[in-house]
Nucleic acid binder design. Structure first.
Length: 426
DNA sequence: TCTGGGGTCCTAGGACCC
DNA sequence: TCTGGGGTCCTAGGACCC
């Protein structure tokens, strides 16, 4: 089936992005087997692997220890999210020169609506080569570019173009291009859906595209229909129904932490919860967001994972309010004494602040907002470990909940200290 | 193999309302 | 009496992506 959309989309995807960034900081890594994500004996998974490491079967999401066995000579590098964000910004700036309609889909990939840019940049292939060269010149990094009349096809195409390539699916040839590809190449088809489709005898995108809608709906529900539409090369369902370039801001903000060793001690667990709440609160204030729903995530040693949520009548962005609710969820749901592998704190359901706050209470949140913003600025200046919730705040929390707080390691309120504590843990 | 951290979206059941 | 249907919100879990 052809796509008479008349649109032209680019999907730009950086090659081995995290590895490329690390190479900028340490050119000695170039041409070697590199694994980004942590050290070889740590709990954790591979965030990115260089093409040399991939030759040994190493790929992202693989446990670090497995990667070390497959490729013992690999160099293991800790991730540096701040570096990646900075480079991502530079990439975005380059892309914006080629189209006013740019949307970053993640830290290292973007969609460009290139419709109608022919007069400026010439035909799509020429524009893509120009973009490809500019990217290399300005960022010292390789990217791959997929060009097509829909975003799904552009995304699949950039993957086929890797590494360091440009590929254009000429309008009208979408079906022929997609048909032979493995079903796993479809965005949205992971391990589980792959198995389901295999059980139905569907192995290629072409076979999926040919299915009757009625049959797919019976087998996979509503979601199966948009999947089939995508297999036919049509942007359908969820984000694909929106326009490019009108980003909405985040829908949730969360932080989680996996312990190096499982923890069963309540004080230690609640101490970590407090830290996570502080990090989440800070991000909320950075974005100017107030959350109505708070989530606790808890993973036990055996990997059994639960999430528990609670919605507030009024949205909040304050550490102490978040902590109070999350700790209550924790105490109500943690099976006391059972060792915990991971804790997480999340916020969602963002809403405007205010509403019908009781007059008596109105001044208190405001004061805390000021204090926390001051703390945020100190953290900007001296680093994340420089400010902890002080005894003053702990007292307030205790007054409100009539419960004791975990030992806060004798830190003074709002004082600076060494920034080592939190380094290398992210 | 022994399984991160940050997200998005979907499903499904129950409560509640009209 | 034995029984509706739809809409929205909330919660829990899970698939998937980078």
């Amino acid at each position: 089936m052809s796509l008479p959309s008349g649109k032209t989309y680019f999907h730009v995807d950086m090659d081995a992005f995290f590895v490329s960034v690390e190479e900028l900081f340490d050119p000695g890594l170039k041409g070697k087997a590199v694994v980004v994500g942590g050290q070889r004996d740590e709990r954790g998974v591979v965030s990115a692997a260089s093409y040399e490491a991939r030759k040994f079967g190493v790929h992202s999401a693989m446990p670090l220890r497995t990667a070390a066995k497959l490729c013992p000579q690999a160099i293991f590098v800790n991730g540096h999210p701040d570096r990646y964000r900075e480079c991502s910004k530079r990439i975005y700036e380059v892309l914006c020169r080629f189209s006013p309609l740019v949307e970053m889909a993640s830290i290292d990939e973007a969609y460009l609506d290139m419709t109608g840019t022919e007069r400026l940049y010439g035909p799509p292939l020429r524009a893509a080569h120009e973009l490809h060269q500019t990217m290399k010149r300005e960022t010292q990094m390789n990217c791959s570019i997929g060009i097509a009349g829909s975003r799904v096809v552009a995304k699949i195409t950039s993957d086929q173009a890797k590494p360091n390539g440009v590929l254009w699916v000429v309008p009208g040839t979408e079906a022929a291009f997609l048909a032979p590809l493995d079903i796993r190449k479809m965005p949205g088809v992971g391990k589980v859906t792959e198995k389901k489709l295999h059980d139905l005898g569907i192995r290629t995108i072409g076979e999926l595209a040919q299915q009757q809608d009625k049959y797919l709906h019976e087998q996979l529900g509503e979601w199966g229909l948009s999947l089939a539409a995508k297999a036919r090369g049509e942007d359908a369902g969820g984000w694909y129904d929106t326009e490019i370039g009108e980003e909405d801001g985040p829908r949730s903000i969360s932080h989680e932490h996996t312990f190096n060793q499982d923890i069963a001690e309540q004080g230690e667990l609640e101490g970590m919860l407090l830290r996570l709440c502080e990090m989440v609160g800070r991000r909320l204030r950075e974005h100017g967001l107030h959350a109505r729903t708070l989530h606790l995530k808890l993973r036990y040693s055996d990997f059994r994972t639960i999430t528990r949520a609670h919605s507030l009548p009024q949205p909040t962005q304050l550490d102490n309010e978040i902590y109070r609710e999350v700790r209550a969820l924790f105490r109500a749901n943690w099976r006391s004494g059972h060792a915990v592998r991971l804790l997480g704190v999340g916020t969602a359901n963002f809403d405007e602040p205010g509403g019908q706050i009781g007059l008596l209470d109105a001044s208190t949140p405001h004061r805390w907002e000021k204090a926390l913003n001051a703390a945020d600025r100190l953290r900007d200046k001296f680093g994340d470990g420089s400010v902890r919730l002080g005894s003053g705040m702990r007292r307030v929390i205790r007054e409100k909940t009539h419960e004791a707080l975990p030992d806060a390691q004798g830190k003074k309120p709002f004082t600076t200290k060494d920034t080592k504590e939190h380094k290398g843990e992210s």
